[in-house]
């Protein structure tokens, strides 16, 4: 009876049926419970239960991989919220963006999204630099480095597709320049080398209305169809691939022996 009264609120909460149904190991206080808290959570068990000492030093990891993942989540949430107010049409896109700062409550949602995107490019680059500087790409982590390079490329592509959505001068010209590079793609771009070889008699198979740029833009120049395509790629298409690759990336960290370190 006396013992029971001495128990703290936290301990009693940890013994309640609700808590125990969610977190089986109770309040993580003992060494065993703390390990179980990691192993028993679908989110936390990205980590192993125990890690080498140098892995918790900011000087070693810079925390940049974790922050990149965190920013991806922040950008997903703010992006979903922005989608409530944004219509991807030439008629409304620009005015919807203005409304986001002027009419929508908490008018910094677009700022969070835009600056977060810039910050994510930086954190991903810093993460890559850290991995290179510590030689962590070396065997057995070669494959995961490759996945990381793809994730970095997709981060840039995500940012690039988002660039068009405000439909301002910066947007349309950055995308015009960017997609015109596709026009010069060998064989499948109509101004690329080899494209003129793909012809039947006088009829060019690869022209402005049938090349890879046309497929990307959904038209001959950046317009209504391009805005919709970039919107879909930005909101669904690329994040879908990024999430798959992220799962591989995280899983392989564990499978390749956890965080790199000296032997």
């Amino acid at each position: 009876m006396e013992n029971k009264n001495k128990k703290s609120f936290l301990e009693r909460m940890g013994e309640s049926q609700v808590w125990k149904s969610i977190i089986r190991s109770g309040v993580p206080r003992s060494r065993r419970q703390r390990m179980q808290a990691i192993l028993g959570s679908v989110f936390l068990h990205l980590h192993p239960a125990r890690i080498p000492k140098h892995a918790v030093k900011i000087g070693y990891t810079w925390c940049m991989g974790g922050l990149s993942f965190f920013l991806f989540i922040v950008l997903t949430i703010t992006g979903i919220l922005l989608m409530f107010y944004y219509r991807p049409t030439v008629e409304y896109a620009y005015t919807d963006i203005i409304d986001m700062t002027e009419q929508v409550p908490l008018g910094i949602m677009r700022e969070l999204h835009r600056w977060g995107a810039h910050a994510m490019v930086l954190t991903v680059w810093l993460h890559m630099l850290r991995v290179f500087m510590t030689g962590s790409y070396k065997p057995p982590r070669e494959f995961n480095w490759g996945v990381g390079v793809l994730l970095m490329t997709l981060t840039l592509f995500l940012s690039f597709t988002g660039y068009l959505l405000p439909w301002d001068q910066l947007a349309i010209w950055a995308i015009t320049v960017g997609t015109n590079m596709a026009r010069a793609h060998p064989f499948i771009g109509h101004e690329g080398p080899g494209a003129s070889l793909l012809a039947i008699g006088d009829i060019n198979l690869v022209h402005a209305g049938s090349d890879v740029r046309f497929a990307l833009l959904g038209g001959r120049f950046v317009g209504e169809a391009s805005l919709l395509r970039f919107y879909v790629l930005h909101c669904i298409g690329v994040p879908f691939i990024v999430m798959i690759l992220m799962a591989v990336h995280f899983w392989r960290i564990r499978k390749d022996g956890g965080i790199s370190g000296p032997l």
């Binding site: 060494r31 808290a37 990691i38 936390l44 980590h47 890690i51 892995a55 918790v56």
Partner: peptide
């Protein structure tokens, strides 16, 4: 000589 992820890393 390892450290626990909970609480040291999280």
């Amino acid at each position: 000589d390892k450290v626990l992820v909970w609480p040291d890393l999280v």
